[in-house]
């Protein structure tokens, strides 16, 4: 969807403000205690297997632009988590508002226990898949990112759509988020790093260099 989350190239957000720290040090990860809990609850609920990471991303970005932009990062996460709980029937709106159990719990595939956390994090969830279909594009080949405006989830940013690029790298086949986010299965496709010359994105005043975007095969067409 052409939402407010797709920010590449938007102007007017002002300078980047980094938290001041001593050289080599980093700022605390969370500004407020509730952000810590939103982070932990989001990961713990993800571990139940009720939804996948692409559904999570879509739940965060699927908002009216003004709402999305008015929220802090972890408010967006909280919105996403509450949306997924409602959609999946694990909680009701009234339960979220009161914090009290009003409907019986629904079965979930897994409940993560503390002693399993390290193992689950170390394992991760690889997205690469073996597929029979050969790659349609070769490294070095000129391609064009297709013009498109899908109403659902996509990972092709607006700022490269319709622009010419060159295949830099083939990552193998990966789960296709545009399908996976909507419960249509993994539908893995070949994935490529595509380099777009900054000048082809932003014109003659662009910086000297390129932007490299990971693009699934169906986002691309051969250059004419």
């Amino acid at each position: 969807m052409n939402g407010a989350h797709d920010m590449g190239g938007t102007q007017g957000f002002g300078p980047v403000i980094a938290e001041p720290t001593a050289p080599g040090e980093i700022a605390p990860l969370f500004k407020h205690a509730w952000e810590r809990r939103v982070f932990g609850l989001t990961l713990a609920m993800g571990a139940t297997g009720t939804w996948n990471i692409d559904m999570s991303r879509h739940a965060r970005e699927n908002q009216a632009p003004a709402d999305y932009l008015a929220q802090s990062y972890y408010q967006v996460w909280l919105h996403g988590l509450e949306s997924l709980l409602l959609q999946s029937g694990l909680a009701t709106r009234e339960e979220l508002e009161t914090g009290r159990l009003l409907a019986p719990p629904q079965p979930v595939a897994r409940v993560l226990r503390a002693d399993a956390v390290a193992g689950v994090l170390a394992k991760g969830a690889p997205a690469q898949r073996e597929i029979d279909r050969p790659a349609a594009f070769a490294v070095g080949q000129r391609v064009v990112a297709k013009p498109m405006a899908p109403g659902g989830h996509t990972r092709l940013p607006r700022y490269v759509r319709g622009r010419p690029g060159r295949v830099i790298r083939h990552h193998g086949a990966h789960v296709f988020p545009d399908a996976h986010a909507h419960g249509r299965g993994e539908q893995p496709q070949h994935l490529y790093s595509v380099g777009f010359a900054a000048r082809d994105l932003w014109g003659q005043q662009a910086f000297a260099g390129e932007v490299r975007v990971d693009c699934w095969e169906s986002y691309l067409e051969p250059s004419a």
């Binding site: 629904q106 503390a114 956390v117």
Partner: peptide, 14 residues
């Protein structure tokens, strides 16, 4: 309360 998350696991994740 619904049994979906273990608070100790939430803390361990963080």
């Amino acid at each position: 309360e619904k049994g979906y998350v273990d608070p100790a696991a939430v803390e361990a994740l963080i």
